[in-house]
C-alpha cells in the first residue's frame, strides 16, 4: 500500500511539473498538452488506483446486509461486469426504469447491501477530504468495458423516450445566462478561453471521443471523476441549480450522449487536464 501511494505521489509530481512547463508555451493548445500527458503516462493513468479501490469495494461484503455487489445485475446478468458499461444506460425490469451505471449501482447498494439512498446521494463525489465509494465503483466497472464498442440500444421504448428527453434537456435554455448544453457543445471547432469544446450534437466523432473518455482522472483536481460528476459540473458552469444525483434528468441526458457515441470503442477511464 505504501509503495502504491509513493508511486502515486511521484506520478502526480511529474504530471504537475510537466503541466507548468508546457503551460508557459503560449502557442501550445490545451489539447496538445493533454496529448502530451497521455503519451507521457501511457503506461499508467492515476485512475487505475481508483479502479483498484472500486474492485475491492465491489468484492467486499458491506452495508447492513454484509454482502458484496457480486450479485448486482448491471444488465448482462448478476455479477457480470465485463462489457456492461458500453451498453448502458439501459432498461431494467426490476426497477421499471432506464438506468445509467451510477443509478444502477445505487439500486444495488440499497437493495442488496441495505444502504439508504440518502447515505449515498448526500455526497456522491470525491473531495480532498473524503473518497467516494460509488465513484470508485463506477471507475472499476467502466474499466471493464475498455476496448469494447459502445452499443446502447434504443429498441426499448423507454430508452427511446429517455434519448428524446435527453436531447431536449441538452437544448433546454434557462437560468440567468440563458445557457443550455448546446450553447457550448453544438458547434464544431470552438473553445472557451483556450479550452476546446466538443460538438456533442452535430459531430459524431466529437461526441464519441468525448463520451468514451469519461470517467476520467482530472489532473487539475487530483481526482477520478465520474460521468455524473461531469454533468453536475457542466450544469454548475451553465449557472443552473444542481441536478439531483442519478435523477431521471441526468439519466436521460446521459442516454442521449451515450447513444451519440455508439460505434466507438470505449476508452475510459480517461485522463483530462
Amino acid at each position: 500500500m505504501r509503495t502504491k501511494q509513493t508511486y502515486k505521489a511521484l506520478l502526480l509530481l511529474v504530471l504537475s511539473a510537466s503541466f507548468s512547463a508546457v503551460a508557459a508555451e503560449a502557442t501550445v493548445t490545451d489539447s496538445d498538452r493533454i496529448e502530451q500527458y497521455r503519451e507521457m503516462i501511457s503506461d499508467g493513468n492515476p485512475a487505475e488506483f481508483d479502479e483498484m479501490r472500486g474492485e475491492e469495494l465491489w468484492k467486499k461484503a458491506a452495508g447492513p446486509n454484509k454482502v458484496s455487489l457480486e450479485q448486482c445485475d448491471l444488465g448482462k446478468g448478476a455479477g457480470v461486469v465485463k462489457g456492461a458499461y458500453s451498453e448502458m444506460p439501459r432498461f431494467f425490469k426490476d426497477t421499471n426504469k432506464v438506468q445509467d451505471l451510477e443509478s444502477r449501482l445505487l439500486t444495488c447498494m440499497t437493495t442488496l447491501q441495505g444502504f439508504t439512498e440518502d447515505e449515498i446521494t448526500a455526497k456522491p463525489f470525491a473531495s480532498d477530504k473524503k473518497q467516494s465509494d460509488i465513484s470508485s465503483l463506477t471507475t472499476y466497472v467502466v474499466g471493464q468495458s475498455k476496448g469494447i464498442k459502445m452499443a446502447v440500444s434504443t429498441k426499448h421504448p423507454k430508452v427511446k423516450e429517455a434519448y428524446e428527453i435527453g436531447k431536449r434537456i441538452f437544448n433546454y435554455r434557462a437560468g440567468p445566462y440563458d445557457f443550455a448544453c448546446s450553447t457550448c457543445h453544438a458547434t464544431t471547432g470552438v473553445r472557451i478561453r483556450m479550452q476546446d469544446l466538443p460538438n456533442l450534437s452535430h459531430n459524431k466523432k466529437d461526441a464519441q471521443s468525448a463520451y468514451t473518455t469519461w470517467p476520467a482522472y482530472r489532473v487539475s483536481q487530483g481526482q477520478t471523476r465520474s460521468f455524473q460528476w461531469r454533468l453536475n459540473d457542466c450544469f454548475r458552469q451553465q449557472r443552473f441549480p444542481e441536478p439531483k444525483f442519478a435523477s431521471e434528468a441526468t439519466v436521460a441526458l446521459t442516454t442521449f450522449l451515450a447513444v451519440s457515441a455508439n460505434g466507438a470503442e470505449f476508452a475510459g477511464p480517461g485522463l483530462k487536464r
Binding site: I165, I169, F240, P241, E242, E248, A249, T250
Partner: peptide
C-alpha cells in the same frame, strides 16, 4: 415530450448555494 421534459427538469434540480431551483423556470 416537451411537456414531460419540463416536468422532469422542474423535479430533478435543487437549490445549491445561490443557484436556486427556480432558475430552471424558463
Amino acid at each position: 415530450l416537451d411537456a414531460k421534459t419540463a416536468e422532469i427538469v422542474k423535479r430533478d434540480f435543487r437549490d445549491k448555494g445561490i443557484a436556486k431551483a427556480t432558475r430552471v423556470n424558463q
